[in-house]
Amino acid sequence: MELLIFYMFAIVSVAFAIFMIVARKPVSSAISLIGVMFCLAVFYVLLNAHLIAALQILVYAGAIMVLFLFVIMLLNLREKQGAISYHRTALQLAGVAVFCALLVPFMSMVTIPGTSGGAGVSADFGTTAGVGKLLYTDFLLPFEIASILLLAALVGAVALTKLKMK
C-alpha cells in the first residue's frame, strides 16, 4: 500500500518537475513547482514528518510560491523571454544525463548501515511537540540566528526594491 502511494506520487512529482523545466510560460513552471511541493508533502507524511509536511505546504507552496507568482505577474513578461536556449542545451543535457545515470543506480543499490528499520520510531517522532522540543533545546542558537536572518532578508528585500540604481 505504501509502495503504491510512493510510486504514484513519485511519478507525478517527476512529471511535474520535468514540466516545470520545459514549460514556456513562467506561470506554468510555478504551478508545476507547487505540484511537486504537494507531492513532497505526501512523502513527508509517509516518512512520519507531520510538522514538516504542514510547513512544506504553508511555507513553500503557500508563501514562497505566491511570492514567485506575484513577481511573475508584476513583471508582465512577454512570452518569448526566458524560452529554453536550445543552442547550448544538447551538450549540457548529455553531461547531466550521464551524471544522473551514474547516480541513480548507485543510490538504489547501496545499503546504508542502520537504515533498515524505521518502524521503531517513538510516538512523538516528527510531531510539533517532538520537533519543537528539539528546536528550543539543542538547536536554540541556530533557531535565533534563523530569525535574525529572516529579519535581514526582509529589510534587504525592501531596500533592494526601493533602491534607485544609477
Partner: peptide, 30 residues
C-alpha cells in the same frame, strides 16, 4: 534519513533550510 535512522535532527535541518530558502527567495526576487 531522519526516519530511517530514527533521529529527529534531520527535521530541524529541514526547518532551517526552509527559513534560508524563504530569505533567499525574498532577496532574490527583489
Amino acid at each position: 534519513f531522519a526516519y530511517y535512522l530514527g533521529d529527529m535532527t534531520g527535521h530541524v535541518f529541514v526547518f532551517m533550510v526552509m527559513a534560508v530558502a524563504a530569505a533567499e527567495a525574498a532577496v532574490g526576487l527583489a
